[in-house]
Nucleic acid binder design. Structure first.
Lengths: 162, 162
DNA sequence: ATTGTCGTCATCCTTTCGGGTGATTTTGCC
DNA sequence: GGCAAAATCACCCGAAAGGATGACGACAAT
């Protein structure tokens, strides 16, 4: 929403600026024409040089015009990207209480799933490593897991961790 | 790599084509100048009309040029739309090759994520436990993981495993 | 024919994990 | 106050995991 509004305002501002530029260029054009005409009358340059100058000038102007005209409508390609943005994760409390898993144990299970070692978990929770080990041992027992990777797998299956 | 090469080749081809177009237009410009010069000499039109004609002509030419130049390379804006449905899992092959992960390593990473021990993986794949350890060590290196749980986490983030 | 990658296996060594057991403190509840 | 659940910490020990290194064969690319 904010981006959209900003974009529209920017486009309008750019349009106004372009109109001003066009006007100025028109004035410059007339002035250049007059100047070149006088020059032509005075110094008697050849017609080819005069025409070539005007041709080059207006070719450049036209190219610039065409560029600025088409630059304003870029082709928007909408690409659908699958994002695992499923609903926000909610813990299956029924399963938690059925397995008798305490909040602390669930928290540590989550950190294990996050790939942290026992030492890192201990540091993050400001407890000793032994405490983390007892919690993890308990939660492994309750989940029926023999390894922490298996505990992670079961925890995800049971809806205990995202 | 393939995409990049294709893009560069296309850009070069387009540049060559543009140069040709410019050359042809230059030739046409000279021809037109000659023609208009003769006309001017014969019919004795005023300089302003002559200049105006050339101006209009080349302004139109320039506009057309600018239009065709920009029409070929539209500014592609990729708009990513989130799709909640995370359909059947597909391996992110781009990431796999970018990380240099071999099929065997990916297979073992999947079994690790399944909660299997090295010994169980070895038994399932009919290889020695040392081989499994080698593969896992390599895949940990490539993922930048220090533990198997972290490897599982990173593998899921990278779209390597479901 | 040489090179490079992949998969395989091994050995040595260190770190981490997990099981078992026990203990203390905190917290909430009757 | 006393009880129970939860959280905390400690020690020991075996198992598992991980790091480092070397090696060998198959196979494709050059």
């Amino acid at each position: 929403m904010t981006l959209k509004t900003e974009s529209e305002a920017g486009a309008r501002r750019r349009a106004v600026r372009d109109i001003l530029i066009y006007g100025v260029c028109g004035g410059l054009l007339i002035a250049v024409l007059k100047l070149t005409e006088y020059r032509f009358l005075v110094v008697e340059h050849s017609v080819e040089i005069y025409g070539g100058l005007i041709a080059a000038l207006f070719a450049g102007l036209g190219i610039w015009l065409g560029l600025t005209l088409t630059r304003k409508k870029p082709e928007v390609i909408i690409k659908e990207v699958e994002v695992p943005a499923g609903g926000p994760f909610v813990v299956d409390q029924a399963r938690v209480s059925k397995l008798g898993i305490t909040p602390r144990e669930l928290e540590i299970l989550g950190l294990i799933a996050g790939g942290l070692s026992n030492r890192e978990i201990a540091a993050r929770l400001f407890v000793s490593e032994n405490t983390v080990k007892t919690h993890s041992s308990r939660v492994f027992d309750k989940l029926g897991a023999k390894r922490r990777t298996q505990a992670v797998q079961l925890g995800k299956e049971f809806g205990l961790i995202p």
